[in-house]
Design a protein around this nucleic acid. Structure first.
Lengths: 345, 345
DNA sequence: GTCCTTATTGTAAGCGCTTACAATCAAGCT
DNA sequence: AGCTTGATTGTAAGCGCTTACAATAAGGAC
């Protein structure tokens, strides 16, 4: 922003209205103890001069920035962009802007981005998930920046959170498949390193299998980066196992899309020959053929609640340390009993 | 950010290093005329005190913010979030942060958001598309904020741009279908109001049809909001026409997904009974069954180029007023000759 | 050795606003 | 009328940094 141009300043408004700068500032900030008469005089001056306060000066003097930072692994994943979308819309209602930084699942890059954001000036910040470097916490503490994590539901005194249990719905998904008669499972997971959500989902799958006395050999768990193509490749790997799994649990919908695509290519019928599940419930998941059985991550709700809660924290209000939302299993068309098998038990 | 805690200030660093505040500032800003000896002394002091400069004060004094604003209709559309993702990554290299605001396709909300961003402080801004209210331009001019528009390629002295022609590829898509033998077309378009891209694509479709002497009655163009469901509903409308169109041109991939879904539901085979095209080339489009014929919008490339160009403009460098990228038609499986028709000509 | 340049460094005046504190004033009491 | 009280408004000191300008030091040329 070029300020060489002589802008109208608060001072000019004060002169125009014949009041002090303090009064103008008070009107601007809706402070108490301002008479109607003064207010209207100032407002008239503001309008006639087209005055726009300088946010930078305001921030310096008031120690409030009017913006929060959001650190997300990537915006490429619709599940995050949906969350950010609702977060931003809600923040607007609090007259608060949104600064975004991505770190491509590299926690050290997360720290760096956070450092820059804090230095740049933010009133608060929200992170995704529970996995973070100690340096991250240290930054928040040191600069006394209110913060929140989301998308998980771990209980941790260090990390206030708004999210949902990633393990339980994953377990339910697996239990559902077990109940349908499946005994041999394959899993396609996102890299678990620095990604507690991926780990929790995997844990959920494992819990269900273990409880049913089923085995999940290491080579039945394929870890791949996020992406349809990656999901397809992982699927191909799993199909090379003998005997083949009859159900594939995917760590997210996009991986499941890839698996479904690869299945179609290979002439494997879903769900007759093989069941597949996802996690996230992206908009298109219910429009697939067949529609994807998955878990509905409450993206928009998380975004809204993060906005409300973080703003409250910034104001110094008390807020719950941990807020857990529902992530419902959505049974659709990609899961069915394993038809071509004898079904024991 | 709470500054009640006594932070280390630039002053403290100066005292610790036994130099003036100006010298510290010079070191911080890599200014010329600083001796090695002084530099290292100051750097040592900075490290030992763990000093972090205050971005707000810096912004006020230097008149540089270190952040740009991006105004997008919505992040819910992957095509935009992909662009934003690459924009942010590239900006990081210039040590520049990204402020995001969405306006849900309401141009008056765009103006308001821009006003807030400018007031808050941004060094530059990027808008989507060519349709904007005069007030938007007025804001840029008045506050002398460097700006850019993207995602379109209109030639307009008021609006520097980085994007691609939306009409030409749309025309090519229609021409391709005409060449395949199609004569009766349906169009599913996003609302054209305030959305030049949607209009341009529609224009492209019309040009091709007109050139071929084909008619496109008003009831063959259905306008719906963005969304799979919306696309499906529009498709159903078009299928009620008699005689039915043999090809449906969709304004974007998501609408095409909806159409494909509805077609499957209705037992209409794509592409045998009906051809469908999209626009955007979302990641999943090539993984549909059949894979979607569409136009590849260079999202990531636009993001990168916007970052490079806007930063250059902020620095005062000369940059091209209009940069046009390629948006290639991608022929895939949803388009084929209209089999069940006698093919004239 | 003196004077002029040029490279470094310091001094201090802002950047445009907020806000503690002081001053003012009208209203309510005695 | 004189005093108190509380609501309004003004005064001016910052917020933490950058940078124009002055001052000083260090080379060179004569």
């Amino acid at each position: 922003m070029n300020r060489d141009a002589k802008r109208t300043l608060l001072q000019d408004v004060a002169r125009e209205a014949g009041v002090s700068t303090a009064s103008v500032s008070r009107v601007l900030n809706r402070a108490p103890h301002v008479s109607e008469r003064l207010r209207s005089r100032v407002e008239a001056a503001i309008n006639s001069l087209g005055y726009v306060p300088d946010g930078t000066a305001r921030a310096l003097a008031s120690r409030r920035i009017g913006a929060i930072g959001a650190l997300v692994p990537t915006l490429d994943n619709p599940v995050f962009s949906a969350m950010i979308d609702s977060l931003e819309q809600r923040l607007k209602q609090y007259d608060c802007r949104l600064l975004i930084a991505t770190y491509r699942y590299r926690l050290d890059e997360e720290v760096e981005s956070l450092r820059t954001l804090i230095q740049q000036g933010i009133d608060g910040a929200v992170l995704i998930g529970h996995d973070h470097l100690p340096a991250t916490l240290e930054l928040f503490r040191r600069h006394e920046v209110p913060y929140l994590t989301c998308w998980h539901s771990e209980e941790d005194p260090d990390w206030p959170s708004i999210g949902f249990d990633n393990a339980a719905p994953a377990r339910h998904l697996a239990e559902h498949l077990i109940q349908l008669g499946h005994r041999r499972f394959g899993v396609i997971s996102a890299p678990a390193d620095g990604n507690d959500r991926a780990r929790a989902r995997l844990t959920g799958f494992r819990q269900a299998l273990e409880a049913a006395g089923l085995d999940l050999p290491d080579d039945h768990v394929v870890t791949v980066e996020y992406g349809i193509e990656e999901g397809a490749a992982a699927f191909a790997d799993l199909m090379r196992l003998t005997p083949r799994p009859t159900a594939i649990l995917c760590g997210n919908d996009v991986l499941a899309f890839g698996a479904m695509f690869a299945a179609a290519q290979a002439g494997i019928a879903i769900p007759d020959d093989l069941s597949i599940t996802g996690f996230d419930d992206l908009p298109q998941s219910r429009f697939m053929h067949p529609a994807l059985t998955t878990v509905a991550a409450p993206s928009a709700e998380v975004g809204r609640l993060v906005a409300d809660t973080l703003v409250a924290r910034i104001r110094g209000d008390q807020t719950p340390h941990r807020q857990v939302l529902e992530a419902q299993v959505v049974l659709r068309g990609t899961t069915a009993p394993p038809l071509h098998e004898t079904q024991p038990a």
